[in-house]
């Protein structure tokens, strides 16, 4: 592996920023260099929010990426926006609970995860981001479950600690229930 970039995008409330942060943190625990770059400002309100994570064995130059290796599209606008810039042979992970249409690109690897449905089944639709994160880990092989768990343990502290188990469970479910399209 040299340098990989991941864009996670979705609606404001879908938790894509946290998803990106946990990806970055897990990769850091795996001994990689990382950057996490959010989109911020008015586009956070209503439209698509996204963040870019770069994972590398070397020092990272640009945290800005024009052609990501992986796109995690949590809603339709995100799929439309980022599908076209995805690298050839890159990974497009779609939240098929929300995205009810097919991508147009034929030269990329498409994976699907019913993130909302899976989250609902395990008891809290809010963990849909962690379901998607699990699916991402499985599809890309870029981060390990052990590191994700460690990152979650460090993030879910204090009052948030009660949500730790369900988040870990969501990651596991995501890893299992991912489908190759």
């Amino acid at each position: 592996m040299s340098t990989y970039s991941v864009v996670a995008a979705g609606f404001g409330g879908q938790g894509v920023m946290l998803m990106g942060k946990i990806i970055a943190e897990a990769a850091m625990h795996d001994g990689k260099k990382v950057t996490w770059l959010p989109s911020y400002g008015p586009e956070m309100r209503g439209g698509t929010a996204n963040c870019t994570v770069v994972i590398s064995d070397e020092d990272i130059g640009s945290p800005v990426v024009d052609t990501p290796d992986v796109v995690i599209a949590m809603n339709i606008p995100s799929m439309i926006k980022f599908e076209e810039v995805l690298k050839k042979d890159g990974i497009l992970l779609i939240n098929s609970s929300v995205v009810d249409r097919q991508p147009t690109r034929k030269d990329v690897k498409v994976f699907k995860i019913k993130a909302n449905d899976v989250a609902d089944e395990i008891g809290n639709v809010k963990v849909l981001n962690m379901v998607a994160l699990g699916a991402f880990a499985k599809a890309s092989g870029l981060i390990t479950f052990g590191s994700i768990k460690k990152a979650l343990e460090e993030t879910m502290t204090g009052k948030k600690k009660v949500f730790l188990d369900i988040n870990i469970k969501a990651v596991q479910e995501g890893m299992e229930k991912i489908e190759k399209a």
């Binding site: 850091m28 260099k33 990382v34 950057t35 770059l37 959010p38 945290p63």
Partner: peptide, 8 residues
């Protein structure tokens, strides 16, 4: 960018 991004 430097203000908003995260790095170890």
């Amino acid at each position: 960018m430097l203000g908003q991004m995260m790095e170890p």
